[in-house]
Design a protein around this nucleic acid. Structure first.
Lengths: 243, 243
DNA sequence: GCGATCCATTTGTCTATACATATTGGAGGC
DNA sequence: GCCTCCAATATGTATAGACAAATGGATCGC
């Protein structure tokens, strides 16, 4: 091939390739476990040297988007485990990791046109519908969390067919629905009303509340409010100043 | 130079170089703003090709440790701002950012040989001393946080000369003492005893408690427990799955 | 003294090549 | 069927050379 390094506009070739691959991964076109084309194949399809695609794949590996294995190839990785605060935990897995018996009960499920309150939480359009769920997670028979969730069926139409009386929405979403951005808000408040009753707590017991919103390429996916008994749950994060 | 790629043990050359440079930066030997040697110089001192040192410097730039400028060189950057949960906030700055009047009062300061409890919190040696402080932060005259802190004077000897009746330890440490690792634990609990009284809260009011430990190259610096009234403080984190 | 211009320097990107290393899949022996 | 060993293959690391782009500083003209 000829020496024409910055042909397309002003953007570097390896940047263009990286964006390409990232798009395919984040869009779900290449799901977790998918084998990314070999360096050899990429260098043919982009008409460039191996060093260039190697730089891209190494960078994606450093960013945790792919895992590279000698002789086997590069594979789209599952979302990395992060420090716990910045994780979206699967409550079922968390409970079982602690060696306790996991229990789950769907308390309520409705599909409705978004109310003003719903729209404040989920930012969907005025006439659009939302899926609202409320359920309880138990550890060894003791209530462990109340999950109050809104799902945007426009973003996740499959959710309407899902049977959430068996699979917790938390577990299902973590495993099935890719997301690109999330926000946590962590609050301490006193248990009251239905929350207190369903968690079998005295009124006023301190609870740790995690409100989380997730988006996929700017489109809201779900908003959840997880209320945990303060004495049963706390969050841990380890980090360094360099990020 | 000869072709002998993996001479020193089994560790890659570019990894060795990267560790070298990172150590110098994190140890403070190369402070923020310091000009890292040019690629040309590094390739001479490590007897390697430019591509190799370029790979190292590009990786450090991607990690945010250095900033690179054409013709000028590479410079050690200031620590990046992080998402709020993974930040060590300066409470004074936080309060003033919200447009409220900041107040501060030192409640207690003692220097003592570490008790068993102290050592559980700070992991200092058996006969070593610790600096223990307790203070209150106010926003617009209302109690905003109780700060319960241990400082390791072995790691931060300057702390012994500091006048903490004027400068909050939080503010002083954030500005003065570099750290390499930190851990947060976030808890919800009911206010009780001295905490409730000093925060002017009714017994049982939900509080958000942040326990933080910081280290510098493995040496413990400080351990702090910040107790905030739940209705006055919550934590926010925005993040993406790719890290 | 001041501003425009040019140049040397430094990083940015890319190529072609080379050898190292790990690992998978299969061939062959038992 | 199962184990061992081997070779093909994909990634990992490193090199030397090349040109591009940006810019700090010097030089030159006024």
């Amino acid at each position: 091939m000829s020496i024409e390094q910055k042909s397309a506009g002003t953007v570097a070739l390896y940047q263009r390739i990286r964006t390409d691959l990232e798009t395919r991964i984040l869009s779900g076109e290449w799901p977790p476990g998918y084998r990314v084309p070999f360096e050899h194949e990429l260098m043919q399809s982009y008409s460039c040297s191996r060093m260039t695609v190697n730089k891209v794949l190494s960078a994606l590996a450093a960013a945790g988007l792919v895992v590279r294995r000698r002789r086997a190839g590069s594979f789209v990785s599952r979302p990395r485990a992060q420090s716990a605060v910045l994780q979206i935990p699967d409550l079922k897995a968390e409970v079982e990791k602690r060696g306790e018996r996991y229990g789950y009960q769907l308390l309520k499920l409705t599909k409705r046109i978004a109310t003003a309150n719903d729209r404040a939480r989920l930012a969907v359009g005025a006439r659009e519908s939302v899926l609202a769920l409320r359920c309880r997670h138990d550890a060894d028979g003791e209530p462990f969390a109340i999950e109050d969730r809104l799902i945007n069926p426009q973003a996740v139409p499959v959710a309407l067919q899902q049977d959430f009386s068996v699979i917790p929405p938390n577990t299902w979403l973590v495993g099935q629905v890719p997301w690109t951005e999330a926000e946590h808000r962590i609050i301490a408040c006193n248990a009251a009303g239905a929350d207190a009753a369903e968690l079998k707590l005295d009124e006023g017991t301190a609870c740790l509340v995690i409100e989380r919103k997730t988006w996929r390429n700017g489109e809201p996916i779900t908003a959840v409010r997880l209320t945990h008994p303060g004495h049963l749950y706390n969050l841990i994060a380890r980090f360094t100043p360099t990020g």
